[in-house]
Design a protein around this nucleic acid. Sequence first.
DNA 1: ATGGTCGTTGGACGA
Length: 259
Amino acid sequence: MRIASWNVNSVRARLDHVRDWLAAERPDVLCLQETKVVDADFPAEAFTAAGYRAVISGQKSYNGVAVLARSDLALSDPVHGLPSFDDPQRRYLAVTVGDVRVVNVYVPNGSEVGSDKYAYKLDWLARLVDHLREAITHHPRLLLTGDFNIAPADIDVHDPEAWAGRILCSAPEREAFCTLESLGLIDLFRKLHPDDPGFSWWDYRMNAFRRDRGMRIDLALVTGELATAGRTCRVDRTPRGWERPSDHAPVVASFDLAD
DNA sequence: ATGGTCGTTGGACGA
């Protein structure tokens, strides 16, 4: 089983990239963030034609998440939005594929430390933690993936000194990430690659990608059973080098789940 | 150097 995550920064602007990448990689599941489109305008037919079903939770212009699953796989129990949180921003979508609970998140960016958006980010993360504490008791095979907008540690940052205390790296954000880990969730890329920065996002500006001035903020956290089954986790930089790319690269995790 | 580049829009705003 291979499950991928990609912040595409508009699914319509990136439709050709997503289609080409799906055709090349053929993951079982692809979680998308920042689709930036209402459900009625989501290009579902394009993915149906490619052999994938789409579960979508979109909004106009901003945010929006979707899960694409190979059409031959069993899909059940979709949940749109964090339970018990009436959030107008579409940032959470969960679905069970086979016997894996896939939780796709687009964590708020937070803008600047101390801003209203930052407070919303920390509140959103606290609600996510509360929800997952319960969810993992029901799903021994749970994968939490998406754009976390948190660089968990200095190794995940191209210039830790310059970013110290700033958005994506502040102590409260990293503490929220540690709280997720304390629930038993394991950062699969970091487990398999302790010394690889594994950047997944590079700013469009200042030739950041060419200079590899990136951050690892797109993550795959897994419960113990999936960590044991985890075989590979990699960042595919290829589409980041294509013409008019997303500023994020896809992250792909693979599991040996022949139970 | 407090900049820069995208996407969605149709002037800023968010990232």
